[in-house]
């Protein structure tokens, strides 16, 4: 018993169950361009912990229908918070990268568990606890995380975005995200053990490539992982991991994510169930995220640059140039006549 208690205490301080994402500076790469994919363990904006290699159950890259495992030695720790993979894509195509972590347990007091359910958007479980009058019950949760990223190398599109990695839970787009543009929407199917998961809460948000909003200045953490992670600022009630679109999968496990602007999109969900008749666990959760980038169409009929940021291109330069030459000519004749 003591051993279990010690393990649980250890878990609180040393194990991490923050959101996990595969994040890149840009999801548009060129062939032979060195790129870095980072495991962000915290929020999409700030990683708080590295991922130890022994936690990684699977790490794969899929291109041209072939799935290649990422050797654990290829991962490097940038610092104490970010684990990275440096790679150089050799072929054009729509790549899929995935990482799956092993389940781990965490013990939480009732208050902490309720707070985590609220701030991480596990609202169905929170409601169930309220309904069943279980809000005072402590929890021991088994959690596992399964994350994917889809990135485009060169111009050629491949079908690898649709690959099912066989993770316990995973998002699978219904169309290539790189054939979608800002202003459109993207359908994603959520699979639980390979089957569509209906009526599941899904959250989608995005960061603009530049000048994106950030939570870094805010004290922001939950006691749900390797490090203390608690909401202790004045905006606690407003802040959560659930910013952006709150969606719910339909009967086919599909959500339609709106893509209002250019940006790096991240979609997340936590599927949690109660565990009955287990001597240790009270809950089990499976976390899934998917990241990709969206840009805009570049046809002359679809050009939608923000004038405020790209005002130069909004001015018809040909008018400026022709007008300038004509004006210089007219002025020249005027001054010549004068002289």
């Amino acid at each position: 018993m003591m051993r279990k208690i010690l393990f649980l205490v250890f878990a609180i301080f040393l194990l991490c169950s923050h959101d996990l994402y595969l994040k890149m500076d840009s999801y548009f790469l060129d062939v032979n361009q060195e790129a870095v994919v980072s495991l962000y363990n915290g929020t999409f904006e700030k990683s708080e912990n590295i991922i130890t290699r022994n936690r990684i159950q699977d790490a794969s890259i899929v291109i041209n229908g072939k799935r290649k495992a990422i050797d654990s030695t290829q991962w490097i720790d940038k610092d104490t918070t970010i684990t990275q993979l440096v790679f150089t894509p050799q072929k054009e195509g729509t790549y899929l990268a995935g990482v799956s972590t092993k389940p781990r347990n965490i013990a939480l007091s009732a208050d902490k568990f309720n707070s985590y359910l609220e701030h991480d958007g596990v609202l169905d479980m929170l409601e169930a606890r309220k309904r069943q009058d279980l809000l005072e019950e402590d929890a021991v949760e088994s959690y596992q995380k399964h994350v994917k990223a889809i990135y485009q190398v060169g111009k050629a599109k491949t079908q690898d975005w649709s690959a099912v990695l066989g993770y316990p839970i995973e998002f699978v787009p219904k169309v290539n995200p790189y054939e979608k543009y800002s202003g459109e929407s993207l359908a994603l199917q959520l699979l639980l053990d390979g089957k569509p998961l209906p009526n599941q809460l899904v959250y989608a948000d995005y960061l603009q490539p530049k000048n994106s909003h950030s939570h870094e200045s805010e004290a922001h953490s939950h006691e749900h992982g390797e490090s203390t992670h608690s909401h202790d600022n004045a905006k606690q009630e407003e802040h959560s991991h659930t910013s952006g679109q709150q969606l719910r999968t339909n009967e086919e496990g599909i959500v339609e994510v709106q893509l209002p602007e250019d940006g790096i999109y991240y979609v997340r969900t936590i599927y949690m169930t109660s565990v009955d008749n287990h001597e240790e666990l009270t809950h089990e959760s499976k976390w899934a995220t998917l990241t990709f980038e969206v840009t805009h169409k570049h046809g002359s009929d679809t050009h939608t640059h923000d004038e405020d940021h790209h005002h130069e291109s909004s001015f018809p330069k040909w008018i400026f140039i022709l007008g300038s030459v004509v004006l210089v000519g007219i002025l020249f004749f005027v001054f010549r006549k004068k002289s």
Binding site: L29, T295, S300, I321, S324
Partner: peptide, 22 residues
């Protein structure tokens, strides 16, 4: 200046794509 007439259109978006890819 004439060649700039061609360049003048949509420089920003083209630039962003060049930076992404290159």
């Amino acid at each position: 200046l004439f060649p700039f007439l061609a360049l003048a259109h949509d420089v920003s978006s083209a630039d962003q794509e060049i930076l992404r890819a290159g």
